[in-house]
Amino acid sequence: MSDESRTLSAVGEEGRVDPSAVLGTPPDGEPPTLGHAPRVRAGTVIYSDVVAGDDLQTGHHALVREGTTLGDHVTVGTRAVVDGHTAVGSGTSLQTGAYVPTNSRLGKRVFLGPNATLTNDPYPTRRDVGLDGPKLEADVSIGANATVLPGLTVGERSFVAAGAVVTRDVPPRTLATGVPATFEPLPDELDTRNAEP
């Protein structure tokens, strides 16, 4: 199948895919399942068995790996990585350089700021343990350069400040700041749903 026909079969007439994007891996594999009107920019790689809803947007050189599902109106920013077997809820925005590891779960309208990092391995290269990514509930915001450790839950509407390191579960409607993060009630001005795309 030619690159042009593979692209058209994957995105339909309303979608736009840059010629240097790769839809399906290996490159001659079947295309992923993309909903209506995706915009896939240069250098992006989306694995064959990825399933995405309507209006997927990627930045340049984004990566979405195997077994991942993306809801409607999801943004995967420039050089953002979504490793395999991950679920990303509708309206979620992953900004430049954000990292989402295998076995993570992101609810609706989650925001990951630039270079925010989620982790899934509690003992990198030291023990053979299962990989357990974080669970971010609906309307969670994670600031730039913040880190969330493996297996943790960040509760609904919580806000993790830029540069914070989250080492324990974050209750719903909580502001997490510092290294390691400390918690306080979410200020009223932040206690809202995240904006729809």
Results as ranks from 00 to 15, higher is better:
Asn103Ser: 09
Ala87Lys: 12
Leu70Glu: 01
Gly91Lys: 01
Asp188His: 06
Pro32Tyr: 08
Pro197Asp: 04
Lys108His: 14
Val179Glu: 07
Gly15Ile: 03
Ser104Leu: 04
Ala37Ile: 05
Gly155Ile: 09
Ile142Asp: 05
Ala176His: 09
Lys108Phe: 00
Leu8His: 12
Asn194Thr: 05
Gly89Val: 00
Asn103Tyr: 12
Asp55Ile: 02
Thr102Tyr: 00
Arg65Met: 13
Arg168Ala: 15
Glu184Lys: 15
Pro101Lys: 06
Pro124His: 07
Arg193His: 09
Val166Leu: 13
Gly15Phe: 06
Val17Arg: 08
Val179Phe: 00
Phe111Gly: 12
Val88Ser: 01
Pro32His: 13
Pro185Gln: 09
Ser93Asn: 15
Leu152Phe: 08
Pro26Tyr: 05
Asp191Met: 10
Ser90Cys: 09
Ala37Leu: 04
Gly143Tyr: 05
Thr182Gln: 14
Glu137Leu: 11
Thr58Gln: 14
Tyr123Leu: 14
Thr102Glu: 03
Glu66Tyr: 01
Asp49Pro: 02
Ser158Gln: 04
Asp72Cys: 09
Leu175Ser: 10
Thr78Arg: 15
Val64Trp: 03
Asp3Lys: 14
Gly24Phe: 04
Val76Pro: 05
Asn103His: 14
Leu34Phe: 07
Ser48Ile: 01
Glu189Gly: 08
Asp121Thr: 09
Phe111Thr: 13
Phe183Cys: 05
Arg6Tyr: 02
Thr102Trp: 00
Glu137Tyr: 03
Pro38Gln: 07
Arg126Gly: 10
Ala146Thr: 02
Leu131Gly: 03
His36Cys: 10
Glu4Arg: 15
Gly53Pro: 07
Val165Ser: 12
Thr7Ala: 08
Val88Asn: 02
Ser48Arg: 05
Arg39Ser: 09
Gly29Pro: 04
Asn115Gln: 11
Phe183Gly: 08
His61Asp: 11
Thr25Ser: 07
Arg157Gln: 13
Arg126Trp: 06
Asp188Cys: 01
Asp191Val: 05
Val129Cys: 06
Val154Tyr: 04
Ala144Met: 13
Arg39Phe: 10
Thr58Val: 12
Thr96Arg: 11
Asp169Arg: 07
Ser5Asn: 11
Pro19Asp: 06
Val165Trp: 10
Val76Leu: 10
Val179Asp: 03
Pro197Met: 00
Asp191Thr: 07
Arg39Trp: 09
Ala176Gly: 11
Val160Asp: 10
Pro150Met: 11
Pro31Arg: 02
Gly35Lys: 05
Thr96His: 13
Ala161Asn: 01
Thr174Met: 11
Ala176Arg: 08
Gly77Ile: 03
Leu63Ile: 12
Pro185Thr: 10
Leu190Gln: 10
Ala98Glu: 00
Pro27Ser: 09
Asp49Val: 04
Ala144Leu: 09
Gly151Glu: 07
Val17Trp: 04
Glu137Pro: 00
Pro171Lys: 12
Glu137Ser: 04
Ser2Asn: 15
Ala116Phe: 04
Ala42Gly: 12
Glu4Asp: 14
Thr75Gln: 12
Gly91Trp: 00
Thr119Ala: 14
Arg65Pro: 01
Val50Leu: 03
Pro187Ser: 10
Leu23Gly: 00
